[in-house]
């Protein structure tokens, strides 16, 4: 087992080293001509206006929150899904299936809530008073 997971470490190290070596090799080959305009940000050829670290559309964070809930659920359901086949062989398949379905139903309830709340819609209606429609 230790050997298997050591392989993962070696692979990640080799991947990172490959990038580093290629960049190092290029350092000796490529030109380096200093020019102040080369260090500026690309903004369609104009001088950049302000910084890029501004407030961002919060809808992305709602998606991130929904994702985390689902991903935790996925991580917890995978081991149960593995066990299902063994339980099926032992004649307790129905019990395992009911467990998985109950677990997934909680997830579906969450999805239904987010769906009904309108957080899955990217484009929201805006009421005449300027408030977002919920």
């Amino acid at each position: 087992m230790a050997v298997d997971f050591a392989t993962v470490l070696i692979f990640l190290a080799v991947a990172s080293a490959f990038v580093a070596v290629a960049l190092l090799l290029g350092r000796f080959l490529r030109p380096k001509v200093a020019e102040p305009d080369k260090g500026s940000i690309y903004e369609c050829g104009e001088r950049p206006i302000g910084t890029a670290r501004f407030n961002f559309n919060p809808r992305f964070y709602v998606i991130a929150l929904v994702f985390i809930i689902f991903e935790v659920e996925v991580a917890l359901t995978f081991p149960v899904a593995v066990a299902f086949n063994h339980w099926l062989g032992g004649g307790r398949g129905t019990l395992a299936a009911v467990e998985i379905v109950l677990f997934l139903l909680v997830l579906v309830a969450g999805l239904a809530y987010v769906w009904a709340k309108g957080d899955l819609d990217w484009i929201r209606e805006v009421r005449s008073d300027g408030e977002e429609n919920r």
Binding site: L12, A15, S16, F18, V19, A20, A22, L23, L25, G26, R27, L29, R30, P31, K32, V33, K38, G39, S40, I41, P48, T51
Partner: peptide, 26 residues
């Protein structure tokens, strides 16, 4: 691409800018 000049914007966060391709590759 190997022979092309490597540019890092002045305003960029240099360590993170350099780290990103490593993470994508790993």
């Amino acid at each position: 691409n190997l022979l092309k000049e490597d540019l890092i914007p002045d305003a960029a966060d240099r360590p993170l800018f350099r780290l990103a391709p490593h993470l994508v590759w790993m």
